[in-house]
Design a binder for these strands. Structure first.
Lengths: 252, 252
DNA sequence: ACCAAAACATGATAAATGTCATAGTTTCAA
DNA sequence: TTGAAACTATGACATTTATCATGTTTTGGT
């Protein structure tokens, strides 16, 4: 159920280092997909549109860094964003890939003086909508239905991470990788003559960071999956050829 | 910051197999500690007291099982409860130990037809307060401040699990175990002549399930910690003798 | 079209952890 | 108090995964 197939035109890599902000005039399509927005009462919906600001980032930039104070509530409009945490030893772990329609900082943004628990890195050119903590907080206070939608969203996120923690705790490296691929098919898979293609560009290193193994291990396992005709291709053109085979391995 | 030192009298193990329910008459002390409750308006506070039901469970019972439909919103009043997920191969993983004052199912309970993503097992005699999904939902709708408190609670839980996932993904077994012990000190540690004692009863198997290793590995690592004077004792009397040593190991 | 950087690949070896077997010790309820 | 069950302990060995080293292929910007 892909909300938006991250269809970016040839945006080229302009030096838009400092995010180019401009107020969103009319409801962008993406908002119409978001319950949180749809549950707002008429006047508050208009208020939210006034408060939302659009910003664009390119690969290599950061939307925010781990430890920085939270300033905004965010909605991902276009592209993919990875949530990364790093450990003392410099190793990194990617906890989640956000797709268009995903909310972020919906929790941290309600705390005074909260800091970002992780870094948000664009995986290509992305566009986000955001509003100040204050405006977000006011909106929730005036719209219990919206607050309940946020609770639902957070609840889903919580269940996702718990499932992920379970997999990290109990499964072997190849099973974790299989689980990841199965998961990504649902989030960013599109039909392809040879199977299902993932629209997110994922290197073996990206995958390694998502399942807690070294890059070499991810490469070796992917090579095996390739031999076993479960997948084919690399980063920019990754095809899932045997989804049920992967599912079976994931839960073996 | 221990909310309540799980002080249970000699409750003995009466055959209270089917939870003995009875309406909570006056605000139990534990509720006064919970922001969610304190943010309710007067009349809604009374309504919540009317809706809340107390139930007791003993070790070996289940409060609910993975996959069962959700019926209630819960507050832990007394004792400790572990949240467990199990995998296809029969292996189990303990995601979280709930302590008095913790909420559970605050997220699932807002969905129609949701199922429990894990099993809730008492770690001894416990007492919980609960209310029907419907009453909980109504309460949130009428009290935006309460809903915001739930958002904060879920946000904290989300950050916790993400931190845990990071540790599972990046750290060695001994570091994961050290992190666990450090964490538990904050949740259930009390002063002791020899250091800090954990009030929760934790076997090596419990610990193993919490950090994703086998029981043997947990035993060996704890034996090493013992030799290194970091900890002493077992399950029912576990003492942390060198907290900063454990912290150092956890983030090495 | 070309060059540099990134990504992919593979082998040899070491380290970490799991598995299986066996036995001593503690806990708890009858 | 005693006996069974649960817990702790330890060794030998197998398996999984990390580490290090080296080389090839692909990608992307000029």
């Amino acid at each position: 159920m892909t909300i938006l197939a991250s269809g970016r035109g040839p945006l080229s890599k302009q030096p838009n280092k400092s995010p180019s902000n401009h107020a969103a005039a009319n409801p962008p399509d993406i908002l119409k997909q978001i319950p949180l927005f749809n549950f707002l009462r008429g006047q508050d919906r208009l208020a939210m549109l006034r408060e939302l600001t659009e910003a664009r980032y390119g690969k290599g930039e950061c939307i925010f860094r781990e430890g920085e104070p939270t300033e905004y509530f965010h909605i991902l409009k276009e592209g993919a964003v990875k949530c990364v945490k790093s450990s003392a030893g410099g190793k990194e772990c990617t906890l989640k890939v956000l797709m268009p329609g995903d909310l972020f900082c919906c929790e941290a943004a309600v705390f005074d003086g909260a800091c970002h628990p992780g870094t948000a890195q664009p995986m290509g050119d992305v566009s986000i909508l955001r509003m100040s903590k204050k405006a977000y907080f006011e909106m929730l206070k005036r719209n219990p239905d919206a607050a309940i939608e946020v609770i639902k969203y957070l609840g889903n996120r919580l269940n996702e991470v718990q499932e992920k923690a379970k997999i990290l705790a109990l499964d072997r490296a190849d099973q974790r990788l299989a689980s990841l691929l199965v998961d990504l098919v649902e989030r960013s898979g599109v039909k392809d003559p040879q199977g299902i293609r993932l629209t997110v560009r994922l290197t073996r290193q990206d995958m390694a960071n998502m399942v807690g193994v070294t890059t070499e291990t991810a490469i070796r396992i992917m090579a095996r999956f390739n031999r076993e005709r479960l997948v084919s291709g690399t980063a920019s053109r990754l095809i899932i050829k045997n989804l049920s085979g992967l599912k079976q391995l994931a839960s073996a």
